Amino acid sequence: MTDGGTPLGLDPEDLDGHTIEELTDYLDAGRVPADPSIDGSPGCALALDALERLRSLTPDLIARDTEEEPEPDASWVQSILDGIAMDARAGRRIPLTPPDEHADLALTEGALRGIVRAAENAFPGILIGRCRIDGDLTVHDAEVALAVEVSVPFGTRIRQFADELRAEIAARIDAHTALRVTAIDITVQDISSGKVE
């Protein structure tokens, strides 16, 4: 626990006063009864989405690791949890359009990380961990570079996969922001024992 925060190092204001434990309990209950203070919070939405993705993959990966290794290393789980903590923080404000007197549209850095992390949905069995964003996000039409860490199933053709993931992330960022992505570096941090089918 950090001082007054959650086990992931989040402060209550990052999740609009809620904690990771509350969000986990909310998922366990099937989000019933509905809690508008959770459902209406962007930070909670990002954290819930990441927890659901992690939850869907964790049992299978741990079972495979248990079969093949006496003591599976759970550091990759902590890496994903750290990513959830980062995603839930709003971070810098990214303008979506040039400022004008009638409209000031923006996206948060946390939401941008959520867009990047959602690219994993296009590749069954992978997990996106840490995502670093370099560049001045506060300037409209800024150039940025991304560094993304991933875990992939055994048997993945890594070079082909990296190209496909890079294209998927670039397309998602282009669809939702005015940022100009100059580079997307993909680092495979872990290869899980589950094989690609």
Score class of each variant (00 low, 15 high):
L46T: 12
F161Q: 07
D49V: 06
D87G: 02
G129C: 03
I186Y: 01
R64Y: 08
R157T: 05
F123I: 01
V139Y: 05
G5P: 11
D11E: 12
P42F: 08
L146T: 09
V150K: 05
R64A: 15
D190C: 00
I128G: 04
R64V: 02
S193Q: 09
L112N: 10
T177R: 01
T24V: 15
R55T: 13
I84R: 03
A119N: 02
V139P: 08
L15C: 04
E101I: 08
A106W: 15
I62D: 11
C44W: 14
M86Q: 11
I80V: 15
T138C: 10
T66W: 09
A145N: 04
L46G: 13
R172H: 01
F161P: 02
I133Q: 06
A88G: 10
I191M: 03
D100I: 06
S193W: 00
I191V: 14
S79T: 09
T108M: 05
P7A: 09
A29N: 09
I169N: 01
S41T: 07
G129H: 13
H140K: 02
F154R: 13
P124C: 09
A103G: 06
A178R: 04
R132E: 09
A111M: 00
P7Q: 07
L23K: 06
E71F: 13
L48A: 10
P36E: 10
D73Y: 12
L57V: 06
R180S: 01
G194I: 14
E69M: 10
H18D: 11
